[in-house]
């Protein structure tokens, strides 16, 4: 009988309303979206910590340990030396127009490519500059755009110009190189946004009386603008970090003395890693600011589905 007595309360407990603790941890985690597969994210997270978070924090701390002076001496030097702080303006003056032009050019090209049958072939051709890398493109442009290059020779033979146009070792050399290497990237991103838009939206706009321009302005553009903002941010960050073409095609002591050149010189010509870190931090802050502004503006746009309804 004693066994029955002791088992009764236990039985009563079991039929009482199930306490939340009764659900096994594994199931509760699963309900939150975590399970065994989540563990597969760990290597990626580890990678990120090793290759980004750690170097970033290391650099951040290093920038506050100048060779001489107080905590902020590196930053004080950067913002008081025109040779250094002017690199921000020069880099922006290159990166912003190039990125805008790339994004603006990518839209009509993507819209056209969307309609052609051999889309893959054209996409491949347009993407080749990415795989070539910036150095090869810069080398090619040196020959092509130089005083004895095809470009000038053709224009001179055709009688359009009488003396070669200077397109290398100045602002335009870097500008063109960034345009060529940055465009495929902007194009690919834009193509994916454009392809995601239901074709029936344009068809229905047409039946409602909208011509080509109105369909673009009132239907397509509002729907791809959020994507274009992302494209702008990613392309901008790439262009802002320009280095090889600024050295090879630009005038690295003059108008194309971009911020990465300043960082390079601090690190490998002056051997002042702390200063170089500070410059890198400034660079990151500027990029973050621009990206933040663009994404903030994006928040005011329509960002929902680009489908026209069910089905």
């Amino acid at each position: 009988m004693t066994s029955l007595d002791t088992s009764l309360p236990r039985a009563r407990n079991a039929t009482a309303p199930v306490a939340p603790e009764a659900v096994p941890l594994r199931q509760r985690l699963k309900a939150q979206g975590y399970d065994g597969i989540t563990l597969l994210a760990l290597p990626a997270a580890g990678f990120l910590v090793l290759l980004f978070v750690y170097p970033f924090l290391y650099g951040l701390f290093l920038s506050f340990k100048p060779k001489a002076g107080g905590l902020l001496a590196n930053y004080a030097r950067f913002f008081s030396d025109p040779f250094l702080y002017e690199t921000i303006g020069k880099t922006l003056w290159l990166a912003v127009p190039v990125t805008l032009l790339n994004a603006v050019l990518a839209v009509p090209v993507a819209l056209r490519v969307r309609d052609i049958r051999y889309q893959r072939v054209l996409t491949t051709i347009l993407v080749v500059p990415i795989t070539l890398g910036t150095v090869l493109v810069a080398q090619g442009l040196l020959n092509y755009l130089g005083p004895q290059g095809w470009f000038n020779r053709v224009l001179m033979t055709a009688g359009i110009i009488s003396s070669p146009v200077k397109l290398i070792h100045n602002y335009w050399g870097v500008f063109l190189s960034l345009l060529i290497t940055g465009f495929p990237f902007a194009f690919l991103l834009t193509l994916s946004y454009v392809s995601g838009i239901d074709r029936n939206l344009e068809r229905s706009a047409a039946t409602l009386g909208a011509g080509g321009w109105e369909r673009f302005r009132r239907i397509l553009l509002p729907l791809i603008l959020p994507g274009l903002a992302i494209t702008f941010c990613l392309s901008f960050v790439q262009a802002f970090a320009v280095f090889p073409s600024a050295v090879l095609l630009g005038s690295p002591a003059g108008p194309t003395r971009v911020i990465s050149i300043a960082a390079y010189q601090a690190a490998f010509e002056e051997y002042d890693y702390a200063m170089a870190s500070a410059i890198a931090m400034v660079m990151g802050a500027v990029q973050l600011l621009v990206v933040g502004l663009v994404l903030g503006a994006r928040g005011f746009l329509y960002r929902g589905s680009t489908a026209g309804g069910k089905g």
Partner: peptide, 9 residues
């Protein structure tokens, strides 16, 4: 249209 094709924005 079959899928209505309403302008989502």
């Amino acid at each position: 249209f079959q899928n209505y094709a309403l302008f989502p924005h």
